[in-house]
Structures are given as C-alpha cells and as structure tokens.
Design a protein around this nucleic acid. Structure first.
Lengths: 145, 145
DNA sequence: TATTGTTATACTCTATAACTATA
DNA sequence: TATAGTTATAGAGTATAACAATA
C-alpha cells in the first residue's frame, strides 16, 4: 500500500497554479475558522471595502477591480443589499449607473470582517519576515489579467 | 463620475488573500485561453498527474494531496472515469480502497493538459527572472493547511 | 452603436452529514 | 471503533447570452 509520504507529486510542486491554489485554499479555510458564519469567499468583503472607500462606485467598476464579470457582481450586490449593508442609488448624471453606498450597518459589518481578515493574515505572519511578506505580495501583484 | 484610475482599493493590495485570488484568477483564465475546451479548474489535471505518477493511489490519498474533501474527489474520479481517463480497481489487500489507474487515453489526455499548462505558465515567465519565480514558489509553499 | 445593469441559465468547486462496507 | 468510499444536498463563485434602459 502506498504511504502518504511516498506519494509522488511529479510536476505539481513546480507549478505556479498548483501552489497558488493550495495557498489560497489554506487562507480561505483559516478565514472560515476565525470568522465562523462570516464571509465565506471574501466577495462581500471586497465589495464593501470598495463601496466604503469609494462612495457611489458603480457596479461595472466593482466588476473591473474585483476582476469578475458584471453579471456576477449583481448577485453579490443583491446579497449585500438584502443584508442591509449597502444601497443602490440610480446616478443622476448617468442614469444607466447604480451608485453603491455603504450603510452604517455595512460599515459595522466591514469592520468586523476587517478584524477577521487581520486575525487570519496574522496566523500566517509567522511564516514570513516582513521583507519576505512584502516580496511575496509584490511578486503576486505582477500576475494580473 | 469616479474614474477607474481614481478607485481607491484601500487595504486590498496589502492582503495576501486578495493578491492570491487575483493571481489565481489570472492564471485560470490564461489556462482557459490556451486550452479551450480543456480542464477548466485543473482538478482533473491534478488527479491525472497523481494517478500517472502513483499507479493504484487511493482516493483518500488524492484527497489529502489535492487538499480537498474525499467526497469532492468522488465526483472528480467519476468524471475522469466516465471520460475513460482512469479506472477504479478494488484493492485486494484492503478491500475498502479503490486503486486508481490511469488509462492509455488518460495518459494522452494528461500529456495535452501538461502541454497547455506549460504554455500557460510560460505566458507568465516574462514576469519573473528564474530566481524570482523560484522564490515565489518557495514562499507560496509555506502557506499550507 | 456602446455601455450599464439585469435576468436566465449552467457549470465547477467545495463542504457537511449520513450511509455502507471493510478493517 | 476507525477508515474508505459513496450518496444526497447545498452553497459560493463564476461565466455566457440575451435583453432593457440609457448614453
């Protein structure tokens, strides 16, 4: 019987994609651990961050900056609006646009999500010294659509 | 109206999670571009790599090394078996186990997936010199469950 | 004509819980 | 009791295509 230690991973450990996936799964699970019942996939988190830092931002801009399709943003905004964390408001200058505005309860929720996110990232801080963490972020930032 | 250049990303660019997610989405889309009709999420790829390098590997071992639940492996193996890329075979020594064996057509398919994967990763090679790519991989490898 | 948002639809990925067969 | 695999179910995440309203 093949022991776990003897499993041959072949080229997987040398692939960017495999390592990115493993790392992201680990991070997501850690986040789920420290924020039980919180934001599972961090979609809401990104949305609220953008709406808080950019009041009146449009859905198409959220779509661009979270690099997901505009149709995917609709469901995200629906959920957040349903939870009372933000409001759509038809823009007066360009009536095709919905400006997105975070609500007071959305600000509260965002704060707790940010706290969870900090705790989550801290769990991995021991893995890197500050220079390494910076370099990891900078290297990752080069990989874009 | 808020211009795209003026969107404030707040803390997002400083988060490991956000950068991992953006990088992984970019990689997945590049893979979809170079292997149209290929393996969308690379689940099948990992499975076939493991079965090819470790004939008779069990589903629970695949589960551990791809860091997904054993129940999730079932669907993956179902698809691969349905496509004729591998076969389950009840182990004689431990009859609870299914040994997984890649088929000749699975080997062919894996080769084409590997080629696509190489092409995909090459598209990002220009972003890093070899030392940087190594370091990125090594830093990512520290982030594990 | 092009853009913004929406709806409808579908597929992938993953998880949990409860089950069967085997150890 | 514990492990390997399965089934059933559910939810998140994403995409494409077609559409209405607006620019």
């Amino acid at each position: 019987m093949l022991l776990d230690q003897e499993v041959n991973l072949d080229l997987l450990p040398h692939l960017l994609g495999y390592n990115l996936r493993c790392a992201q799964l680990a991070l997501q699970r850690q986040l789920a651990r420290v924020t039980p019942g919180g934001d599972p996939g961090s979609g809401i988190f990104g949305l609220l961050v953008l709406c808080c830092a950019n009041p009146g931002i449009s859905q198409i801009q959220v779509s661009r900056h979270l690099t997901i399709d505009k149709a995917s943003v609709v469901a995200l905004v629906d959920r957040a609006e349903g939870a009372g964390w933000l409001q759509r408001q038809r823009a007066t200058t360009d009536r095709r646009r919905h400006g997105l505005f975070i609500t007071p309860s959305g600000v509260d929720h965002l704060e707790s999500l940010k706290q969870g996110m900090r705790t989550c990232e801290q769990a991995f801080d021991g893995l890197f010294d500050p220079a390494e963490r910076d370099q990891l972020i900078h290297l990752l930032q080069r990989i874009r659509p």
